[in-house]
């Protein structure tokens, strides 16, 4: 429901990074979204298509990597994957479990184009 705000934060952070690198355009943005976060992919793509034009990310591809939910049982210590509705330890049946992953909302990386000469310059400097 708040995908517009989420996408606008993604665009702000990514264009800032791209500008710092002197990039001419962003080809790809990769984000990590936990399965327990309240994010809907379709709404993300829709927001991205609406907000990206006019920025360095115009025409870029938004890739969403889903992070499955995992918890650790507080009583027996076993770590297990689960869905949204039943966070119960499969080993001992305890309800006392702590979430280890599944609420991520992170920007991972971007793929950018650099001006030709900058690319050549970078290569020379590489060890």
């Amino acid at each position: 429901m708040h995908e517009m705000g989420v996408v606008s934060s993604i665009l702000t952070a990514c264009t800032k990074t791209a500008e710092r690198e002197g990039a001419t355009r962003i080809n790809e943005i990769r984000v990590k979204v936990g399965e327990l976060s309240e994010i809907v992919d379709e709404a993300m793509y829709f927001a991205f298509d609406s907000l990206a034009p006019g920025t360095l990310a115009e025409g870029a591809k938004l890739i969403i990597d889903h992070v499955p939910a995992r918890s650790k049982c507080v009583e027996c210590g076993v770590s297990f994957g689960h869905g949204r509705f039943d966070i119960t330890c499969p080993e001992c049946g305890s309800f006392f479990c702590e979430l280890v992953q599944g609420r991520e909302l992170d920007i991972e990386c971007i793929d950018v184009d650099l001006p030709e000469e900058a690319v050549a310059g970078d290569r020379v400097e590489e060890p």
């Binding site: 934060s9 992170d106 990386c109």
Partner: peptide, 13 residues
């Protein structure tokens, strides 16, 4: 070129 961003989307919040 791949550039690492690695930050929470809701970083500012």
């Amino acid at each position: 070129m791949k550039v690492d961003v690695s930050k929470p989307i809701l970083d500012r919040n």
